[in-house]
Nucleic acid binder design. Structure first.
Length: 261
DNA sequence: AACATCATCAACCGCATTTTC
DNA sequence: TGAAAATGCGGTTGATGATGT
């Protein structure tokens, strides 16, 4: 007996989401939450797969998303984290509030990769490309977590010579002082992540005030419809997060989420 | 102006992991 | 304890707009 598909493929709509679908999904989730993604499309009146709904919500509709390109500090943080974690985009995204794994992955592939290559840095190992060329094939590192950690420990990206653009933030300074480095757990991802979360690179206030949503005047990340602009502006523009349009329960849910950050 | 190529990013697919029974 | 279901993750694709010829 084989495993059933995640959803009934028949009658399931694919492709870009319409404004109406977005509205239905947002309204449903703000009212009911998403206890079970599989059930969401049915209950929300959408002809979509639960997976698709989850993706749309996490990557585009979530109220706490930042829009627009990553700034330099964020970009540098992504580089540092990638050196340590490899292509584990969700773990990297967890460290950047308001950013999604998909967004970071796309940004890495379209911008950062090229930037690093231009700087003479291998985007996979984070080692200088010339140094890489001297490594024989059987000695060459493979793309694994351990190699990223190794690369990160061997190579301080901020000290690359002759580069066209120097990263603004030293690889280590996001995480620790020397004292902290000694205590940094390195044996497992969970340890690493809990260490990372315990540091205070950003604070909640910063996270909250960064809830800026696309507006009619912004050139990037325009929502697909006017109602979505209203929805997003409602959170970000009135100085009180615009919670008035949602129920107290919704507000509490969002505040609880923020508390957990 | 028309076409080709490139760049970007939203969305999909399939596999892995976790949860439930 | 194992199978099935649900969810999460990362790689990839395809549509679209920008840029070059």
């Amino acid at each position: 007996m084989g495993r059933q598909p995640c959803c009934d493929k028949l009658g399931v709509k694919k492709g870009p989401w319409t404004a109406d679908e977005d509205k239905k999904l947002v309204t449903f989730i703000l009212t009911h939450g998403h206890c079970c993604w599989r059930a969401v499309p049915k209950l929300a009146g959408l002809r979509r797969c639960g997976k698709s709904c989850r993706l749309r919500w996490t990557n585009y509709l979530r109220p706490d998303l930042k829009r627009g390109l990553l700034n330099e500090a964020e970009e540098q943080l992504v580089i540092d984290l990638h050196a340590r974690l490899g292509n584990r985009w969700s773990k990297i995204a967890a460290r950047l509030p308001g950013r999604t794994d998909n967004e970071i992955k796309n940004h890495w592939n379209t911008h950062i990769k090229k930037k690093l290559i231009k700087m003479g840095i291998d985007p996979v190992t984070h080692e200088p490309l010339q140094q890489q060329a001297n490594i024989t094939e059987d000695q060459a590192p493979i793309n694994s977590h351990d190699d990223h950690q190794q690369a990160a420990s061997n190579f301080d990206i901020a000290n690359v010579g002759e580069q066209q653009e120097k990263p603004r933030i030293c690889s280590e300074q996001n995480y620790s002082t020397d004292h902290e480095s000694k205590n940094r757990p390195t044996t497992s991802d969970d340890d690493l992540m809990s260490y990372m979360w315990s540091s205070d690179t950003f604070d909640l206030a910063d996270t909250f005030t960064s809830w800026n949503f696309p507006t009619a005047s912004s050139s990037e990340g325009n929502p697909s419809s006017p109602w979505l602009m209203d929805y997003h502006q409602g959170f970000g523009d009135d100085g009180e997060l615009g919670f008035g349009r949602f129920s107290e329960g919704d507000i509490n849910t969002v505040l609880d989420m923020a508390d957990k950050l």
